[in-house]
Design a protein around this nucleic acid. Sequence first.
DNA 1: TATTGTTATACTCTATAACTATA
DNA 2: TATAGTTATAGAGTATAACAATA
Lengths: 146, 146
Amino acid sequence: MLGVVFRAYVKAAEHVLSDLPGGPRGYQVLSAAVDDRPRNQVAIGQELGVDRTILTYLIDDLEKQDLVTRRPDPADRRSRLIVATDRGRSAWQAHRDALRRAETHVLRALPEGDVTVFRDLLQRIACDAQTRDPLKDLCEVVQPTS
Amino acid sequence: MLGVVFRAYVKAAEHVLSDLPGGPRGYQVLSAAVDDRPRNQVAIGQELGVDRTILTYLIDDLEKQDLVTRRPDPADRRSRLIVATDRGRSAWQAHRDALRRAETHVLRALPEGDVTVFRDLLQRIACDAQTRDPLKDLCEVVQPTS
DNA sequence: TATTGTTATACTCTATAACTATA
DNA sequence: TATAGTTATAGAGTATAACAATA
């Protein structure tokens, strides 16, 4: 069920973000670039769980469309801070809104109150999954003879 | 949040099913093979949303480990029905149980009652997503000027 | 002519390794 | 010596096209 729902959301998100370079991933990078505290490519890569070599191509494409720029980091001349341009900022806002509508659309089977409950439960699971290492203590659990 | 939870589940599932050829996908094929009504490769492919060319390799690997067999279809000599062997059946049961424990583990942040609520909400969303074409009516929703 | 399963090929995505420039 | 970013190359996974057998 989780897979079905996730795929439905991904499909909707891919559709909504298809005109952005890199699709959903490009949107995530753009989100990081819009943020107040600009980060370099390594930081964004860790945050998104993608390799830094992939980010090079991705940011190349975003930069070609004038959505983000590589700004030199005053503190470290090796590092480039990724910041959104004005075009990137408005593109991000438009896509964020479209994404929200798509999300509502995926959850349309639930009445409004249940959507809130679902979000709350999902957040508790997600927080728990992020704080702990998912595999570390799983090994003990899955063994039939524990 | 959906992505975080889904990835946590996938990671746990991959770990639990890693000794099966094809990992989670191999398990899904095995599940179809265990079913009472055996299907051919095209039917399984449609059910799982994978290409039939991939199934050829996947079933090759499962057959090599004596988990499933290609049985001739008495109704159509072109078609091969995929059925689980005895080994495949017991392997499936063991992995199904391990998967259930892994699932419980992912949801361990929720008290038992909330797990039931979460499952129920998820099922309603999933059913809705499966019955309708996710993209068909999405186009009208995401347009800012509708 | 269409369909099932197979095979070979090509493509996409991602990771690995080597390189430059800085620290 | 280690790190940020880039580039080229290699690999996994997947899809496309052609094929034989059958409907």
